[in-house]
């Protein structure tokens, strides 16, 4: 039985109960699980015990790299590959490069933040087992959901269900893959 299902889905009525429920799931030691809410519930990442995001480090690294490459490109293009005197200034004129240098830094950081955000969140994701659930449709309206995957080492169908109901779930469903 437990080999056939993907996991369990539990529905909660409001941000307070899902916040408390997340704390209980976190304290029970589950790892492969997620919470879905119609709007951002502040502090839910803390209740879920989510580690600090690695996104800033990715953005910093790629941003600095893009910044250095951008400046190098300008110096190479204007200074040696296609030398052109503009306004009587020297070929390598740092002040003239700064606006473009700055924009390239911002561009590389922003594009990295956007793409890394998608990759780290596993997006795009056209299908998810939770989409099989009729109840889950209201996640974009007024219901709050926690789902725990069967692959989680702590997963035990009856115990997991009991935990979720005990935390105040108004509905607990099994999800097929």
């Amino acid at each position: 039985m437990s080999a056939k299902i993907w996991g369990v889905l539990a529905q909660y009525e409001n941000p307070h109960t899902i916040y408390k429920a997340c704390e209980q799931v976190r304290d029970a030691g589950y790892e492969k699980w997620d919470a879905c809410t119609p709007f951002p519930v502040h502090g839910l990442d803390k209740a879920m015990g989510a580690p600090p995001s690695k996104l800033p480090w990715v953005v910093l690294t790629v941003g600095l790299t893009g910044s250095a490459l951008g400046l190098f490109f300008e110096a190479w293009a204007m200074g040696s590959a296609y030398p052109m005197v503009v306004g009587g200034k020297p070929l390598f004129s740092l002040p003239a490069f700064v606006p473009v240098w700055y924009e390239l830094t911002v561009l590389s950081s922003c594009v990295t933040a956007f793409l890394a955000n998608w990759i780290m969140n596993g997006l795009p994701r056209p299908h998810h087992p939770a989409f099989n659930s009729k109840a889950f449709e209201r996640v974009t309206d007024d219901k709050f959901f926690i789902m725990i995957e069967a692959e989680d080492p702590k997963f035990d169908l009856e115990k997991t269900k009991a935990l979720l109901s005990g935390a105040g779930a108004t509905l607990v469903e099994e999800l097929e893959p």
Partner: peptide, 12 residues
């Protein structure tokens, strides 16, 4: 500060 500088530097 840079905006002030670059306009003056460019226009010369």
């Amino acid at each position: 500060a840079f905006s002030q500088f670059i306009l003056i530097w460019y226009a010369n």
